[in-house]
Amino acid sequence: MIATFSINGRTRDVDVQPNQTLLDVLRDTLGIFDLKEGCSEGVCGACTVLLDGRPVSSCLILGLSARRRRIMTVRGLAGDGELHPLQQAFLRHGAVQCGFCTPGMLLTGLAFLERHPNADRAAIREALAGNLCRCTGYAKILDALEAYARELNGRG
């Protein structure tokens, strides 16, 4: 059936099968590869997108349930050629290795810090518990998120 999606501020009408996950709709039907498929069971967080500003594992929800809700992927972060300050923090702090977890880390971290701008490192760590990374050992990802939080608070 044809359903209307709002993806990174753009409206798209998509032919969606009722059994398709949001991940399948975005990756297979629309060719939006910003989100990655790491486990297909909601554990690794690589397929994270923001749904109305909240991080969700897109492999766990049906595509149709995201109709007319605001979907944001990593492409929605950067402005015209300008990286988002959180993306810049990831670069400066060496938070990226293979990059497969990076989209999910960015979106989960951003959503959390927008709600909790005064969060300390321990709280950010808890917020990342659903996003696995096999390369970095997390320290540099936390460095980047903490630096971005300081920036948000004008302490950067």
Binding site: D34, V74, L77, F90, L91, G99, F100, L106
Partner: peptide, 16 residues
């Protein structure tokens, strides 16, 4: 350079 590509999800992994 690859980190720049990865924070914008420009990198096309094998499944992409």
């Amino acid at each position: 350079h690859d980190a720049r590509d990865k924070v914008t999800a420009a990198t096309a992994f094998a499944a992409d």
